[in-house]
Design a binder for these strands. Structure first.
Lengths: 265, 265
DNA sequence: CGTTCTGTTGAAGTCTTTCAAATATAGTGG
DNA sequence: CCACTATATTTGAAAGACTTCAACAGAACG
């Protein structure tokens, strides 16, 4: 069973749309290189549900999202689906330094993408050091995000997973306090991302709503009313608690009985 | 909550120990570069349970395993632990292009490592193109492996996870058919890697043993007697079934009711 | 050879899934 | 613009898988 990475998201940059922002904090030479990168791109549209590339397709292009949302998923032989991650506007995906993508990319909503020929990127990487560095940074962020998601899937309860998901989406989408979060993906997509069933996702959302942590004005919008409550759920402790003295309070849920932690060291 | 990647495993190379093998299929210049890399390394030992580096430690060194096993893990504020992956002899870990490691590395067994100063690697990357390529390949493999693990955690039952784990370990360790698989890690480690409890790990192993799929000569060894049975469990279908026509048979477990797959396209 | 740690098995409890049904939303054609 | 159909979401109730608690067995170690 073969697979590989092929997606990454812009680090901090709030939400650059199609062009490096003028307020980009990176050195001038670097942004110049990136601008060169953008010269190579072509605009493409995909409609809701459309497949952008398949897991074993030849990796000919990389993509950057202008608008819309894309899901990167893997299918098992018996038809189970795991959504590795969602890609939001400004995110870059579909490059893996390998021959096939390793994940399937599908449009969650109607989507506009910039398409970059792989050959061109590689040529540019060789000459423009900024591009190389940039790609590495993207990959680094992508790995970070996957590590985090492994923790979510490995250690968290349904409600905690939903909390993590909402917080991360809120951050990435650059939603301000008080603003509403747009969910372009359906409940089934969320379920397949978090390793839950659609019913469990619904119930967890309903419960958070009942508790007053979030509001659900309509199916595709969430209003986070109590961010710190979400944090406590998602991170397993109150916000801003700079690394407590290791396993401080008696843990309640999901196997946390292994706080030995190197008796030596 | 910050994190980043910092580990990778040699791709196909069965199990190089400390030095690039003579049978290395890569171009000569590349292996020369890698040889240069190895000039930079220092030998270090760690004893069972010892911490090699912490999640937020400054990323000063990368490591390659000569012998022993290392676990890369993340701890939540309330003390839950998730083992992102185990590193085996020949594996390279602890480089992330970021400032901190993002994961904690601990010796599962007594371990001998080669330690590479980060600065030196970077210098070498700049001059030796082979090193740069090599690092990218390692990172690419690492991402692949994490994507696979996300599928395991997101879609699989306890028994399936154990099957996936055993198969992957068997492959990586280069265990031949009939040979026994050495488990240096304890049951709790396996549990924390697979998002299960230690009891569930035991029960799943016992069941596989009862079914005649594996043998357990002693706690730290597994004899895989029926590899294809393990495959069917791990991959959700028989071995060598080149991409069935999408969701062929009625799926039994863990939410596989979403086989819409782009009605357009 | 006893103490301690790790692994194994049993039984009860919990959370999530599954199955089922109702409600809401979106899309279509009149 | 409305009625109607298809799709998506929500909720309930029962079943199931995994966890938790508890006790025991076995290996490791001094």
């Amino acid at each position: 069973m073969s697979m590989n990475f092929s997606a990454v998201r812009k680090p901090e940059t709030p939400m650059v749309r199609g062009q490096a922002s003028a307020a980009d904090p990176r050195p001038a030479a670097l942004t110049a290189d990136l601008r060169a990168l953008h010269q190579l791109s072509t605009r493409i549209r995909f409609t809701r549900g459309e497949t952008i590339f398949g897991e074993s397709d030849d990796e000919t292009h990389a993509y950057k999202i202008v608008s819309g949302v894309v899901r990167l998923c893997k299918y098992t032989l018996d038809g189970r689906r795991q959504i590795i991650d969602f890609m939001l506007p400004g995110d870059f995906f579909g490059f893996s330094k390998r021959n096939e993508y390793g994940v399937t990319a599908e449009a969650v909503s109607d989507t506009v993408l910039l398409s970059f020929p792989r050959k061109q990127i590689e040529r540019l990487e060789a000459t423009a050091p900024g591009v190389q560095k940039h790609m590495n940074a993207l990959m680094s962020d992508w790995v970070m995000s996957m590590q985090h998601h492994i923790v979510v899937l490995g250690c968290q309860t349904a409600k905690e997973r939903i909390a993590s998901f909402l917080l991360r989406l809120q951050e990435r989408a650059g939603v301000q306090a008080g603003e509403r979060l747009d969910l372009s993906m359906g409940r089934q997509d969320i379920a397949d991302h978090l390793g839950l069933t659609i019913e469990t996702v619904c119930r967890a959302l309903s419960e958070l709503k009942r508790e007053g942590v979030i509001g659900i004005p309509n199916v595709h919008q969430i209003a986070v009313t109590d961010t710190s409550a979400l944090y406590e759920l998602a991170e397993g402790g109150p916000r801003d608690e700079e690394y407590a003295p290791m396993a401080p309070n008696p843990v309640s849920h999901r196997s946390a009985r292994h706080c030995e932690r190197s008796l030596l060291s």
